[in-house]
Nucleic acid binder design. Structure first.
Lengths: 335, 335
DNA sequence: TTGTACGCGTTATCAA
DNA sequence: TTGATAACGCGTACAA
């Protein structure tokens, strides 16, 4: 039950004052100490298994080397690789991640932010951003990942939703599809909104009309909500551009229920290329986003931001790639 | 850029001493303060938007209300729901989770433990336990989840691997299978080992012989490793009990490569019922483990343990359920 | 280059 | 019931 060694113990063993030990232990102040004593201190620290008490350090420096990571729900398969990327980049810089899930509940998000701020969090990475979220009033460095706000004051890392949907529509058009539907994601989220706008854009660019019956809105980025929205689709469409992969799976269910086959009767395309999208039945055509890299980049942006809070708010947009699988087919020739 | 209010500000506003304010603010010591002054302090705190500085509190109390959660890799689909359960239970108790991934690297695990301990973590939940892991020398409360050690000194929450495999073998036997193979998980992990033992047990219980050619070992619980191990299988088996779902997917690939069809030629059963197991092709028969509940239970065990470190080390085993899907079929009658 | 002195914000202990 | 005081471990002006 012996207590962990403090810097004083290290100092005693090295026959120096605690202040000197502190300087020797801290890379940024090591230059202020003679190499000989510095080495003695370092050795003493090692032999004692000294680890600095971060509470004391935080109290003194107002920093904690901890970042808060807030996401809607870890069980949505998009997030694990993003979080993993965040964690890896943070760790490289000596940071750790505090995790929290909100289930999309804004009240819960506020509570989480408060609780994490109380724990001296140095910054936040939020995957929960809504398009019209206000700039946080307090000045804790914050980065958005995957989703972003309409205004450009908060740094963000997102992917090229526009290019992804354009590539999707182009592929479908080339396969002869004209009656192309869109089961859109929530319009309060940049992902849902940008993909919807891109769908309209791309259709126009290919000279394809859009019947309002071909567009429905999913309440959430879930399989269930996608299923409900897909059921409301009318007008004999031959292809569906889904707001994301989970919504696409909901479309599968709705099609099956109507006795329609994918891709023979209706082609379906998702977005995200979430894990196991290739294992679905049929294998899902989708737009691959660089999940892990988004996490990496978001964490790096946050670290930059912590280092210099006045730096301009970058908005990083990562490239995407259309992955064609079995869920799309050329349109049946009209007989 | 004004600084956040401290307990002193609250005390001044309420016209009491800081110590009194502390007592009033802290639920466990509130009784030591008259109701009238307590209310005055609480109101002052509210009007100032006071939030305690947890670094100072940690420094003083040696506790942080933070738990470390260490897992192999968040991208393994088994872990997200477990972590989510952990997080939910921790939050209910005012705790937060620090996350870390090890990729199964023991060196990295040591580093993580050290770094987290330095951050005043009150306890650990490890999903990385190996059968022969030593009891941690330091006395930080620790709970294992999903995997456990052979010795019984560390509390753990696992699932009934034995019952799950027995149910699997029984189902296969009832379908007429006799040449039942096992692609085992890593034997250094309790999950891999217990399921292997259960396979041998269950085969014996049904009077079925086990040819050594029917058993291979996967290096890891991954699709790739499962594929490699499945390729080594010999002896014309008609069913495979896979160490887990990812290994089962590897078996799918190996079978396909040999031109064998599942379930027509070979039945396959996994373990875990990970998300989207029902969406695989063919839909995977598997043993459902209560992921989320395991996380909940592990966190509760940890909280108990933190409250009373001398309490006996419970080993909780949660029930499982065999989920039959399209990947198994009755054996083809011998012609 | 090293030592001294102090304060970060909180809570435990002791005295009133 | 309340106030005064000290201490948690560290980092940093300042002095030597």
């Amino acid at each position: 039950m012996e207590k962990p060694p403090t810097i004083k113990d290290v100092a005693n063993l090295a026959r120096v004052h605690a202040a000197t030990a502190s300087r020797a232990l801290n890379p940024s102040t090591r230059a202020k100490v003679s190499t000989r004593t510095a080495n003695r201190v370092l050795e003493a620290a090692k032999s004692l298994g000294y680890a600095p008490n971060s509470a004391a350090r935080s109290l003194r420096t107002k920093t904690s080397s901890v970042a808060g990571v807030i996401i809607p729900d870890l069980r949505n398969p998009v997030f694990p690789p993003i979080v993993r990327g965040i964690e890896d980049a943070l760790r490289e810089a000596g940071y750790m991640a505090l995790m929290g899930n909100t289930d999309g509940d804004e009240e819960r998000e506020r509570e989480l932010l408060l609780a994490m701020r109380g724990r001296q969090t140095d910054g936040f990475i939020l995957a929960t951003g809504r398009r019209n979220d206000p700039q946080p009033e307090d000045r804790v460095p914050t980065v958005l990942v995957n989703r972003r706000t309409d205004s450009s004051e908060i740094p963000s890392v997102t992917n090229d939703n526009n290019a992804g949907v354009h590539a999707t529509v182009q592929m479908l058009a080339e396969l002869g599809h004209e009656r192309i539907a869109h089961v859109a994601g929530p319009q309060a989220l940049s992902t849902g909104w940008e993909r919807y706008r891109a769908y309209l854009d791309a259709m126009a660019a290919h000279g394809l009309a859009v019947d309002p019956e071909w567009v429905t809105y999913s309440e959430a980025f879930t399989e269930e909500a996608g299923y409900e929205a897909a059921k409301r689709l009318q007008g004999g469409v031959t292809a569906i551009v889904a707001g994301n992969d989970l919504i696409a799976l909901g479309c599968y269910s709705a099609l099956e229920e109507r006795g329609l086959e994918c891709p023979t009767d209706v082609s379906v395309v998702g977005f995200n290329d979430m894990p196991f999208a290739n294992r679905q039945r049929p294998a899902l055509t989708t737009v691959r986003i660089p999940h892990y890299e988004m996490g990496l980049e978001a964490a790096r942006l946050l670290l930059e931001r912590i280092a210099d809070p006045t730096a301009p708010a970058k908005r990083v947009i990562l490239p995407v790639e259309l992955i064609r699988r079995a869920s799309v087919a050329a349109i049946k020739s009209v007989h």
